[in-house]
Computed example of a mutant assay.
Amino acid sequence: MTTASSYFRLAPAALAALTLAGCATVPGEPDPRDPLEGMNRSIYQFNDTLDRAVLKPVAQAYQTVTPTPVRDCIGNFFGNLRDVLYTANSFLQGQVPDGINMAGRVLLNTTLGFGCFDPASKVGVPSIPRDFGSTLGVWGMGPGPYLVLPFFGPSTVRDGAGRLVDTYASPLTHVENVRVRNSLYGVRVVSDRERLLEAGDLVDDIALDPYLFVRDAYLQRRQAIINQSLGQDAAPDYSLPDYGDDPEAAPAAAPIAP
């Protein structure tokens, strides 16, 4: 298949990018939040190359051949699964009213929405993105250095640890049929990437340095989510549309993710 062959052609580039990560040139003064910028830029470039060669074309094809109602249904299905994690983390962060509302949202979308529609948003019960990385932040753990993860994109040391917990807690992880589970993961990645097509093009158009744009938007959004849970004034959110703040789902070149 074309997609598979493109991916394997990228394997040498991936190895080279990761091997030479520490040798990348860092322009300007180093940012104290990003002491590993040289390595991060190399991994960012690898992710971007993979995205342009594989993920973005697949997402564009998916958008072309799949009717909008079907794409919306698929997106709502995976969004409902994410809301299960958001519900648990709302309670862990001490946001009991939000946790109750999120539990009601999951129940409403699962029953009246058949897992395909989003009646909860229509009646004024929005999704509140809270993952375990933000829970660690509310509990007082600092973010640590900014990290760009291969295939997954923006993160920090704290959010990377939270990602492991969220991945294990995800309902998809516990689907016993391996073929079905992997198929669901694949569909979710394509669906999420399709939602970011316009945002990704915007980054290319307006950002003089896309790496810095993505990094600053990511860190700002993460702090805003934590501030909101702590009852503080949230930082302005200039971030682009995202993947529903699901840390395990974001494809390689996602402009932001928690």
Rank of each mutant, 00 (worst) to 15 (best):
G137T: 04
R193I: 08
P67D: 07
V157R: 12
C73D: 04
V54N: 04
Q228A: 13
Q93Y: 00
Y62N: 05
G144S: 08
A4D: 08
V70I: 15
F91T: 00
Q223F: 04
G144C: 09
A61N: 15
S127M: 09
V189E: 09
V96W: 04
I74A: 03
T19A: 14
F114A: 15
V96F: 03
L36Q: 13
R105C: 03
I74L: 10
V54I: 12
A53W: 06
P171M: 09
V125C: 13
P67K: 07
E198G: 04
Q95C: 01
D83R: 05
A254D: 06
Q45R: 14
N40W: 03
R105E: 06
G113T: 04
G142N: 08
N101P: 02
F91W: 00
G115M: 11
L202H: 12
N109M: 09
E248W: 13
P119Q: 08
R82L: 10
R41Y: 09
L85E: 01
G200P: 03
Y44G: 07
A13M: 12
T19I: 14
L208S: 13
H174P: 05
A11F: 15
G142D: 11
P27H: 06
T173G: 06
A88L: 10
N89M: 00
P119C: 11
A11H: 10
L197R: 06
D242I: 01
V178W: 15
L10T: 06
F77P: 02
L85H: 01
G38I: 07
G186W: 11
D233S: 11
D237F: 02
R158H: 03
V54K: 00
F77T: 13
D242T: 08
Q45V: 04
L81W: 08
R193C: 05
R9K: 13
D245N: 13
L85F: 01
P119I: 12
F132R: 00
S5Q: 15
Y86C: 06
F117I: 09
F78P: 01
L20S: 14
S134G: 02
C73H: 09
L219A: 04
S42T: 08
P119W: 07
L55H: 11
G162V: 02
